[in-house]
Amino acid sequence: MADAGLIAIGAGIAVGLTGLASGFAEKEIGSAAIGAMAENEKLFGKGLILTVIPETIVIFGMVVAILLWLNM
């Protein structure tokens, strides 16, 4: 199919950009969380939760990519 290449590129962009976005967001939260944990170890749970919240972005990207792939 002629569109297959375009769909693959689209899926790649969906996962790649959302992955970057998650990473970018988690980087800042993660370093702040580590800083907070250094002062108070009990904050581990809260830090972990806050750090992984942006992960949902890349999951959205992945779902979009899979839907694209299924329509290939």
């Binding site: 949902t56 999951i59 959205f60």
Partner: peptide, 12 residues
Amino acid sequence: MGNIISYTRLAA
């Protein structure tokens, strides 16, 4: 909705 979609990581 985000919460629900988040569970797709089980498959991913």
